[in-house]
């Protein structure tokens, strides 16, 4: 009678897993925050500015990653409405956009190195930071693409809807987060490019 029943014991064990993803995103954010504060300490402490105008490729890649977020959103919507063909289609689209983002980033490196003479091993390491930021972000993109493929594979196998939605949600959280991180990094670089 005096017992306070506060929590329902019957919970999906998927909820804590989703929570895991959020915490992971937090650690990932800390990682990029550390890199950018490293940049601030480096460029502020010794007066090394970046002095590089960011290549246009970054604009395109930003557009691509934003569009890919939209397509993934549409895929989620389709999944919730049980339109699996549509979900599959949008997932494929997202995948293609993801690969395109990857390719554009690599192209941006090419432009930086060969057209603008900004090297990874530049004596001014704030320029090396550009490569580190994008490179570390691309590593995350690879992981996200693998996650996406996993979800995509799920849609071909007849898995329960609960599971399908769960996978969609996990992928979405991570994918949108990477979009946000990229925008953060890009804006950071733009602000510091002079």
């Amino acid at each position: 009678m005096m017992a306070q029943i506060q929590k329902d014991n019957d919970r999906l064990d998927l909820a804590p897993k989703k929570f895991n993803m959020w915490i992971f995103i937090f650690t990932s954010f800390m990682f990029f925050a550390a890199l950018t504060s490293g940049f601030i300490v480096y460029s502020g402490g010794k007066g090394h500015g970046l002095n590089v105008i960011m290549p246009d490729a970054f604009k395109y890649s930003t557009a691509v990653i934003i569009i890919s977020s939209i397509t993934l959103l549409l895929a989620s919507k389709a999944a919730k409405q049980l339109q699996f063909a549509k979900q599959r289609m949008f997932l494929w689209l997202t995948f293609v956009l993801g690969v395109a983002f990857f390719a554009i980033q690599v192209y941006a490196w090419y432009v930086l190195t060969y057209k603008m003479n900004v090297y990874l091993t530049d004596p001014n390491a704030s320029r090396s930071f550009v490569y580190i930021f994008t490179g570390m972000h691309l590593l995350h993109i690879i992981a996200a693409i693998l996650l996406l493929l996993n979800t995509l594979a799920g849609t071909y196998k007849n898995i329960p809807q609960v599971r399908n939605l769960f996978k969609m949600e996990m992928t979405s959280i991570f994918w949108h987060f990477l979009g946000i991180i990229w925008i953060y990094l890009y804006v950071f670089l733009l602000l510091n490019q002079n």
Partner: peptide, 10 residues
């Protein structure tokens, strides 16, 4: 995650 999500009743 476990501490925040999976505590028993009460």
């Amino acid at each position: 995650s476990t501490v925040l999500n999976m505590r028993t009743k009460g």
